[in-house]
């Protein structure tokens, strides 16, 4: 009887060790996948999509968060510094990993010739993690020809990147982040970035620093507002526009696209 009890105790101990080992291996695999930016969720990216303008809404009074230049290494190359502030154009920073599934769509989109970036002269810079956190050789293979790429975990920290894919649009003149966040695909991201640019243009014009609109400007936003009002039955001279009850004789701001003051 004693022998049986001892054998059972040994068997239980061995099984406990095996289970402990399996759990530990599993945890290590999960950590490694997380470091490589691979999500186990089939449905979506690592981040809630459609949140590009979040930085703008979190901004300090009077402006967006301050951007920082990128220092790191070129994939399979040497040290580099990329200037994103003090430059006369916008920079789209794409924080991508070699392994995440959603990133694959962006790697493919950025490999397309003449990818249509929002804004005037916007430059695309792909930012990967340091070789200690991602596969440098895999990243070097993924970077499309002609696209600037830099490996910099410090930049991921500077821009508070919660995971990949993540994007930040930087106004090089102001040195500020116009918009930042994630998306599920390039078209969605482009729309969100364009919205962020429109918002930045609008904010700039309301601060009295009017800059020539780039594509969809504050003027086009006003035109869209006019269209929305018109479709709701609110046109020039509509009583709801004049709570005081007296409409002006000539055109007004809600009719800016159609009528001119003589």
């Amino acid at each position: 009887m004693t022998v049986v009890v001892v054998l059972l105790a040994v068997a239980v101990g061995v099984l406990a060790l095996i289970v402990f080992g399996l759990l530990r291996t599993h945890a290590e695999i999960l950590r490694a996948l997380d470091r490589a930016g691979i999500s186990l969720d089939d449905q979506a990216s690592d981040l809630p999509p459609g949140s590009v303008p979040d930085r703008a809404t979190e901004a300090a009074p009077g402006g967006h968060q301050t951007a920082r230049d990128i220092a790191g290494t070129v994939p399979a190359g040497g040290p580099t510094k990329v200037a994103v502030t003090g430059v006369p154009h916008h920079t789209l920073l794409a924080f991508l990993s070699s392994g995440c599934r959603t990133c694959k769509r962006f790697w493919e989109a950025f490999a397309e010739p003449g990818v249509d970036l929002p804004g005037d002269g916007t430059r695309l810079v792909i930012v990967g993690q340091d070789p200690a956190h991602d596969s440098e050789s895999a990243l070097a293979e993924l970077v499309p020809p002609g696209v600037k790429a830099v490996l910099s975990s410090a930049a991921w920290q500077d821009y508070d990147v919660p995971g990949s894919p993540y994007f930040a649009l930087v106004d090089g003149v102001d040195g500020r982040i116009v918009g930042a966040g994630s998306a599920l695909g390039w078209e969605q991201l482009r729309e969100l970035l364009q919205e962020a640019l429109d918002d930045a243009d609008l904010a700039r014009s309301t601060r009295g620093r009017v800059r020539p609109p780039a594509g969809r400007s504050g003027r086009s936003r006003a035109r869209r507002a006019d269209d929305a009002l018109r479709s709701a039955g609110v046109g020039p001279g509509h009583p709801s526009l004049y709570p005081g009850g007296s409409a002006p004789v000539h055109g007004n701001g809600a009719d800016s696209s159609d009528r001119r003051v003589e």
Partner: peptide, 24 residues
């Protein structure tokens, strides 16, 4: 100011400038 250094070569890169150190 960012400093890049590799293989015995070092450069201070001022704001608005870019630089890259590589090997042949």
């Amino acid at each position: 100011m960012t400093t890049l250094a590799a293989h015995g070569v070092s450069i201070d890169v001022p704001a608005g400038w870019e630089a890259e150190l590589s090997t042949q």
